[in-house]
Design a binder for these strands. Structure first.
Lengths: 121, 121
DNA sequence: ACAATATATGCACATATGTTCATTTATTGA
DNA sequence: TCAATAAATGAACATATGTGCATATATTGT
C-alpha cells in the first residue's frame, strides 16, 4: 500500500509519480515488439522501401531501379520486413510484388512526418 | 514525358508505378530525419524511458529506480533524446526532470501500440 | 571550504546491423 | 532440357550502437 521506496536519496521520494507510472507500464514483451517494429523504420534503406510502397505495390527490381540499390540489399531488407509482417507479397511469374501489410504503417509514417515537418518551422 | 525506362528487363516496364512513386518521393534529408527519429524509438531502454514519461515528468534517478537501470545508462540515453529534442528538461536543485517535448510522440507510440496489439489477435 | 548527492560525459568493449559478393532457388521460354 | 532472368540466401566484413566504469561537473547543506 504505502510503497514509500526512497528514490534519489531521502529528499526525493517521488513515489506517487513512480507508482502511477508503474501501474500503466507496458510489459517487456510489448516493449520488445514495439522497439522491434521501430527498428525496421530506423534505417534509411528500409524507410525508403516502405515509403515507396505506401500507395502502390512494386516488385523487387522496381525498388532496385527506383532507389538505386543492389538487388541483394533490397531482398535482404524485404526479408526483414516480411518476417515482421510489415509487408505482404504476391508472386507473379518470376517477379514478386511487395506492398504494405496494413494501413497502420501509413498512419505511423505520416504522423511521424508531421512531427518532422513541424520541427522545421 | 514518356520516361519508358526499362525496369526488370524488357518485360517488366512498371514505369507508371515507378514515376508515380518518384513524384511523391521524400527527399533524402526527410528520410534521414525520419529514420533518425525512429532510431530513438528502436531501443528497449529508450522506449521504456519514453513510455515512463508519457504522462508525467520524472527525474533521472526516478527513471533509474523505476526501470532498474544504471544511472550512466539512463543519462546517456537521455542525452540522445535531448539532442533529438524528443524530451525537454527542467532543473530543480540537483535534480533534472525530464518530460516529452510534444504530444506527437505520445500519438506515434499509441498508434504503434495499436498496431502491435492488433497483430496479437 | 568541504562533503554529499544528482547528473553528465569520455572511453573502451561487446554486440548488433547493413552491405556486398557469391551462390542458390524458382520460373519462364526456346 | 537448357539458358536467362528475378529473387532469396549465406558468409564475411566494416560500421554503428548500447552499456558500464571511472571521472567530471553542478548544486546543496554544514
Amino acid at each position: 500500500m504505502d510503497d514509500k521506496e526512497y528514490i534519489c536519496g531521502e529528499n526525493c521520494p517521488h513515489y506517487q509519480n513512480i507508482s502511477k507510472v508503474k501501474k500503466m507500464e507496458l510489459n517487456i514483451e510489448q516493449i520488445e515488439e514495439l522497439s522491434n517494429m521501430f527498428k525496421l523504420f530506423a534505417d534509411n534503406t528500409r524507410l525508403r522501401i516502405i515509403c515507396s510502397i505506401l500507395n502502390t505495390e512494386l516488385c523487387v527490381c522496381d525498388l532496385c531501379e527506383l532507389l538505386n540499390l543492389n538487388q541483394s540489399t533490397v531482398s535482404h531488407q524485404l526479408q526483414l520486413l516480411r518476417n515482421a509482417k510489415l509487408v505482404k507479397y504476391r508472386k507473379e511469374g518470376k517477379q514478386v510484388f511487395y506492398s504494405l501489410q496494413d494501413e497502420h504503417i501509413e498512419k505511423i509514417i505520416s504522423l511521424s512526418l508531421e512531427h518532422i515537418l513541424e520541427g522545421e518551422k
